[in-house]
Amino acid sequence: MVYLKLFWSFFQIGLFSIGGGYAAMPLLQNQVVDLNNWLTMAEFTDIITISQMTPGPIAINAATFVGIKIAGIKGAILCTIGCITPSCIITLILAKLYYKYRKLTIMQGILNGLRPAVVALIASAGLSIFSLTIFDTNQIPFNMSHVDFIALGIFLVCFIILQKLKLNPIYVMLIAGTMRLCANWFI
């Protein structure tokens, strides 16, 4: 039963994460943290962090991580298969249509409407992670007396580095980790 649930959750994540990159993140948070409680928000943030530093798509990495935690290696394989099944079906159908008509008008129309929504959803998931790191909770209202100023400082430095220098995110992660380590050393 839990196998079926894992498969179905990751099938939905695969089916509705459109736009690549971080598009899967809000859906993952929704299925894995909010609906099924397979991971805590902190564990979810960890897996996004780990994904940033390991090869492979976020959704596949998360599928393995969640699958193993809930149902062992069998669960990991099942989640991964669930996650890629919609891709297999839809890419092959789109390819067939494309070679027949040489156009992707309908899909491009859908994408035009979706792109701004996907940005908004990623922003929403990003804010959850932000509030978790700064306020140690992702529930509104935030407790203003529990602000982690070191985390806030690291966030600001990283954000400025990214905006101004366009540095590779992997280096930003290493800088962030090192800054926290140094801060703990001296403070």
Binding site: Y22, I48, G126, C158, A176
Partner: peptide
């Protein structure tokens, strides 16, 4: 913990 702040910055930067 430091990297969490980093990933938050990366995602906010992307958005």
């Amino acid at each position: 913990k430091g990297m969490q702040a980093g990933i938050a910055a990366i995602i906010i930067d992307v958005t």
